[in-house]
C-alpha cells in the first residue's frame, strides 16, 4: 500500500482534523489584522507574535500532559494546582538558602511526585480519572496553602516572594530581543513530546490504550506502566511550568497557573484530540492553543470589552465543535 502522490497528499491533509483549525487560525489572523488597522492599532507584527507565543508558554506545558492523557482516555484536573505547589516549594527553598538550581530541581520533583501519587490511586483503585484528580486537586491545594504558611508567625498562607537574579533571567530574559528563553525551552520540550507521541512506540501504546484498555492489556501493553508514565509526565510538566513561573514572577504564588489549566485542556480539545479515541496529536493541540491565544491577544489589541472577549473565548470551543460536526456530516454523506 503505497502513499499516493501529491494530489493525494492534499486530499489527506484535508481529511486531517488539523486542517480546518489551521484555516480558522488564518481567518483569525486576517480578521484581527484588518480590524486592528481599522482602529489604528497594529496586529500583524512581530510584537504580537511575540506576545502570543510568550503568553502560551505555561499553558503549553500543561497541554503536553493534558494532551497525552486525553489520548489514553484519562485526564488530570490537578495539574495546575500541582504546578502552583511546585512554584511555592521552589520559592520556599530559595528563601531558605537553597541554591537556585536545587530549588528548581525540587520544584520539578514535587511535580513528579504528585504525578506518581495520582498514578498510584488511579491504577491501584481504578478510579475514574475525573473524580480522582478532582479530589487530588483539593488535596494539593490544601497542602500548598499549608506549605506556604510554614514558618510564618500567624501561620497564614501567603505568596512567597524572593529575589534571585539568575532565576529572574531564566524567567524573563529574551533571546534575539523578542523571544524569551522560556519560549525556547517550551518549544524544545514540546517538540520532543510531539515526536514521542506521534512517532515512538510510547505514542502507539498510548493510543491503543485509549482505544480499548482491555484489549490493549490482553495484547501485552502494560497499561499500568503507561498510565503511571502519563501522570508522571503531567505532574512533571506542571512542575516545570510552576517552577518557571516562579522564576518569572519571583514569587511562589498560590494562584499560579489557574487559567492555564483551562487553556491547556481547551487547546487540546480544540486541536482535535478526542477523549480516548486515540485520534489526534500534540501538533493539533499546539494549533489549538495558538488559536486560543491569538484570540486573547487579538481581543486586547483591538480593545475589545473584556466581557465580549470572555464570550468569544467560549464560542471558540463551540465553533471548533461545530467544525467537527460539519466535517463528520460531510464524511457520512460520502
Amino acid at each position: 500500500m503505497t502513499k499516493s502522490k501529491s494530489g493525494g497528499f492534499f486530499k489527506e491533509l484535508l481529511q486531517k482534523k488539523v486542517f480546518p483549525l489551521i484555516i480558522l487560525l488564518i481567518v483569525e489572523i486576517v480578521v484581527f489584522s484588518l480590524w486592528a488597522s481599522g482602529i489604528g492599532s497594529k496586529f500583524f507584527a512581530i510584537t504580537t507574535i511575540r506576545n502570543i507565543l510568550n503568553n502560551m508558554v505555561f499553558a503549553a506545558f500543561l497541554t503536553i500532559g493534558a494532551g497525552c492523557l486525553m489520548l489514553s482516555g484519562n485526564m488530570d484536573l490537578s495539574a495546575s494546582t500541582i504546578g502552583a505547589m511546585a512554584g511555592v516549594v521552589c520559592a520556599w527553598s530559595v528563601t531558605h538558602s537553597v541554591p537556585w538550581y536545587f530549588a528548581m530541581l525540587i520544584g520539578i520533583i514535587v511535580g513528579i511526585l504528585f504525578g506518581l501519587l495520582n498514578a498510584f490511586i488511579i491504577t491501584k483503585f481504578r478510579f475514574p480519572s475525573f473524580i480522582a484528580t478532582l479530589g487530588m486537586s483539593s488535596v494539593v491545594r490544601g497542602l500548598m496553602y499549608f506549605a506556604s504558611s510554614i514558618g510564618k508567625e500567624d501561620a497564614s498562607a501567603q505568596n512567597i516572594n524572593f529575589t534571585n537574579d539568575i532565576m529572574y533571567d531564566i524567567g524573563n530574559k529574551k533571546l534575539f530581543s523578542e523571544f524569551t528563553i522560556l519560549l525556547v525551552i517550551m518549544l524544545i520540550i514540546y517538540i520532543i513530546f510531539a515526536i514521542l507521541v506521534a512517532r515512538t512506540k510510547f505514542g502507539t501504546k498510548v493510543k491503543m490504550l485509549g482505544g480499548n484498555p482491555i484489549a490493549a492489556n490482553l495484547a501485552g501493553i502494560n497499561s499500568k506502566g503507561i498510565i503511571t508514565l502519563l501522570y508522571v509526565i503531567s505532574g512533571g510538566m506542571a512542575g516545570i511550568a510552576g517552577t518557571l513561573f516562579a522564576c518569572k514572577m519571583q514569587q511562589g504564588s498560590l494562584q499560579a497557573l489557574s487559567t492555564a489549566q483551562f487553556t491547556g485542556l481547551t487547546g487540546a480539545i480544540l486541536g482535535g484530540i478526542s477523549f480516548g479515541g486515540g485520534e489526534g496529536g500534540l501538533g493539533g493541540a499546539f494549533v489549538g492553543m495558538l488559536i486560543l491565544n491569538t484570540f486573547t491577544v487579538g481581543m486586547s489589541v483591538c480593545n475589545v470589552n473584556s466581557n465580549l472577549a470572555t464570550i468569544f473565548n467560549g464560542l471558540l470551543l463551540i465553533i471548533a465543535l461545530a467544525l467537527d460536526f460539519f466535517r463528520q456530516a460531510r464524511r457520512n454523506k460520502v
Binding site: 493510543k207 491503543m208 482505544g211 480499548n212 482491555i214 484489549a215 490493549a216 490482553l218 486515540g278 485520534e279
Partner: peptide
C-alpha cells in the same frame, strides 16, 4: 470485539 480488538484502529 470488547476484549480482542481496538475497533477504531
Amino acid at each position: 470485539k470488547d476484549q480482542g480488538l481496538v475497533m477504531y484502529r
